[in-house]
Simulated assay, not measured.
Amino acid sequence: MKTKQRKWIWVIGITMVLALAGIGAYAYSIYSNVKHTAQQIYEPVTPIAPKKRTKPVSLKRQTPISFLLIGVDERKGDRGRADSLIVLTVNPNEKSIKLLSIPRDTRVEMVGKGKMDKINHSYAFGGVNMTIATVEKFLDIPIDYYMKVNMESFKDIVDAVGGVTVDNPFAFTYDGVTFPKGEVALNGDKALKYARMRYDDPRGDFGREDRQKQIIEAVIQKGASLSSFVYYDDMLAAIAKHVKTNLTLAQMRDIQERYKEARQHMEQLHLQGTGAKINGIFYVLISEKERLAVSNALKTHLEVKQQRSG
């Protein structure tokens, strides 16, 4: 079942991590600032359930690894809920990445809460720790690293690189802004609107996803250029303000160095569910057959033991 999840949140997160590691790699003179930012965003996990890994991850030996990208809409005085939950598995041996968006209304067991509820409520109940434990139980896979990204980061990261330019395939107006056909210069606010439009796109969600990819690719290209260093203070500020992760700077650099070729092949997996109301509340219900198929696909990619049906 289609949801309104912002599927591009994983790319924003990875872009920020690579930017953070890349800046440190290319410019020693600003290394202390990069290191300080990495320390600011570092937030380790406190496990509330037994670990799924039987052997520790070795980045130097290129163990296939997993990430949970948590897109949140946090407000002052309110922890908020997980607006997007994206699982990434990265296999450097196959040079590939698999991505799975979990519908936020998916009905699952809340680990540590002892009840069934929508998966995005796990963050409201128990923050990152409960969200990781709940996703691990639902998919029966280890989550090695997480990245929590505030949704406002999308605007800030575009502004942090000094804006981007995209080639718009057709003219449209959205939320009071007109986007002409052809090359369009976008600041953070306009980029967010450009990426969100869907209903006037003849390709619907597919068209929207392509525009989101346009912006992300433009951000990566701009962020990777030496000229972007004039904006590095803004980039680090955006990362420090909007990101939390259990990755250390050393781990980020190891992943950037040893796993980057996995970006050559990306595959999106999908959880097909049905909508239903239970006690007046809407849920997305995932069949056991569907859950098992997706779980085993991720396990194969992570090179861990599969489940058997029955």
Rank of each mutant, 00 (worst) to 15 (best):
Y31M: 09
G310E: 08
H301S: 05
K277P: 02
N246R: 02
Y232C: 03
Y174D: 11
I65N: 01
Y199C: 02
F172C: 11
S66H: 00
N91W: 00
Y26Q: 11
D201W: 04
T173P: 09
G176P: 09
Y199E: 11
S29M: 11
V230A: 15
S309C: 07
R104T: 01
K213G: 06
D159N: 12
S32H: 09
L271I: 12
M197G: 04
G188H: 05
F170Q: 13
T245Q: 03
D78P: 04
K113H: 11
G273E: 01
T165M: 12
I278C: 05
G77H: 02
D254I: 05
N246F: 01
T37A: 09
I141F: 04
A171Q: 15
T46F: 02
V128A: 05
Y194T: 00
M147F: 05
T54N: 13
T106I: 04
G13I: 04
A171N: 07
Y26E: 12
N296L: 07
I14Y: 03
G223K: 01
K60A: 14
F282Q: 13
G24W: 02
A133N: 06
G162W: 05
K55Y: 00
V304I: 15
I215C: 09
G80M: 07
Y232R: 01
G176D: 10
Q307P: 07
E217A: 11
E43I: 00
R198N: 09
G77D: 07
T3H: 07
D254Q: 15
I141L: 09
D159I: 03
V243K: 03
K55F: 06
L186R: 00
K118I: 01
I70L: 10
K181I: 12
R308F: 12
A195G: 07
M116P: 01
Q214A: 09
I255V: 15
D201V: 05
V135T: 05
F229V: 13
L285K: 06
G13Q: 03
K241T: 13
P169R: 14
A27M: 11
Q40H: 10
S228D: 06
V45M: 08
E290S: 08
I30M: 08
K213I: 14
D159W: 03
D254Y: 09
T3E: 12
Q5I: 10
A25N: 13
P56V: 08
I14T: 04
K52T: 03
S153Y: 07
T106L: 04
L236D: 05
E217T: 13
